[in-house]
Design a protein around this nucleic acid. Structure first.
Lengths: 129, 129, 129, 129
DNA sequence: GTGGTCTAGACCACG
DNA sequence: GTGGTCTAGACCACT
């Protein structure tokens, strides 16, 4: 279901958060769907239950899921969480980090744009399925 | 000279590395130019000398500067450091991280592409000066 | 510095979050002030370091403090984090929970109002010091 | 009859307890009235029968209803259940929890008082009907 | 020394 | 069975 890559720069719990966030954004997980149980997912990914719990707690505070005690976590309709300022600020930071990472790699600007477009397109196609 | 932002996601030493790398890429620092001394830069940026030393050591291992004993660090013509595989892999990771960060922010794909293009254009213009 | 009450309904990490949030709101902790270290506070309160770390991580995501790696956590100027809708919704929930808790206790409405006013006044006075 | 809100901070059984307690306080349920059966209410609210049973058991121990074997639960005249100390202590805790929840939301003290008053007034009006 | 992440294993409240 | 909290102890990156 979710790919955990040990060589990834992101910590495991973040990979889980991103993985599920992506599934919600692409529509693979819809409003009202239940997330796998903490214990179930932790066994499946071969990580500690605490790690999954931490990821789930982040999804909770992101407002993407809600907890029904004794039942599990359920996807809810995400609202716009950030203010416009906050949103722009985060966007700028993400772009800066990205460019800084990429600028020394020797790609042409056209190539970079093309690759990003390609990735976004993949996502869009996936969400259409 | 270099902007250190405390709220930045990147650690300080990385911000220094990126800042100098950027100056080299844009031509602000040319082959043969001398970097500021560790002490000088650490005082200027108000950070620990260890932090600057770590940044410089990374620039050395990146092959962007060379050490002339007793004189300091000097910019050299950057060679292609990464193998093609390494290069592509880093690029893919950077893109993934970027998209993951941005996907939940609610921007349209066109907007994202436009913003990245804008940023790249700024850099290009700066390097032409 | 902070009072941990084992009989409290709130979990320990929440008590820490609330305690520090209160200190920030009342001005006892000002912008730029450093929080006690995770290990220091955990020893002082005789709780596990993870528990303090969890509290600090929540303060971080609340946007009340920022992390300077290797240095510690520092209070920042809190921005308005919630949208107006979100803010009102939380307020309504808090009032409902409060009233539900209090309604069966047999106090007069005047008494309840008076007690809340008293508590708010205490806070205000404390912040003026 | 009773509103169960999945997004509520309170567990379901507590929502049921509060809902019925409120109906007793406002006079909607009077002394001698019969509560719906566990099975009936659980079907009506679409919750587990255990959950309703737990709520009813709490109402019993609160002294708000009495069990007549084979007949069901009946509302009785609520006595003063808590000692004065207990009562004050619960009140203080409720106020603290409320203030902690509300303090970071950016409302003025006047606004808070006004909102609580408003809510209490609604309750009073409802009980007069 | 600082915070951040992870594992192992435990207990609790809820349904 | 579900999530939520806590302890104990470890390792890592950063300053």
């Amino acid at each position: 279901m979710i790919q955990i890559v040990t060589g990834d720069a992101r910590p495991i719990f973040k990979q889980i958060v991103d993985g599920i966030r992506m599934k919600i954004m692409t529509g693979e997980l819809k409003k009202g769907d239940k997330l796998p149980s903490v214990r179930g997912l932790s066994m499946q990914l071969v990580v500690n239950t605490n790690t999954v719990a931490k990821a789930y707690s982040e999804l909770l505070s992101l407002g993407l899921v809600e907890s029904r005690k004794g039942l599990g976590l359920f996807v809810i309709k995400p609202k716009q969480i950030f203010s416009d300022d906050e949103r722009d600020h985060r966007m700028q930071q993400a772009i800066n980090t990205f460019i800084n990472e990429v600028i020394g790699l020797g790609f042409e600007q056209n190539e970079i744009i093309k690759m990003v477009q390609e990735k976004l397109k993949q996502l869009k196609d996936k969400s259409k399925q």
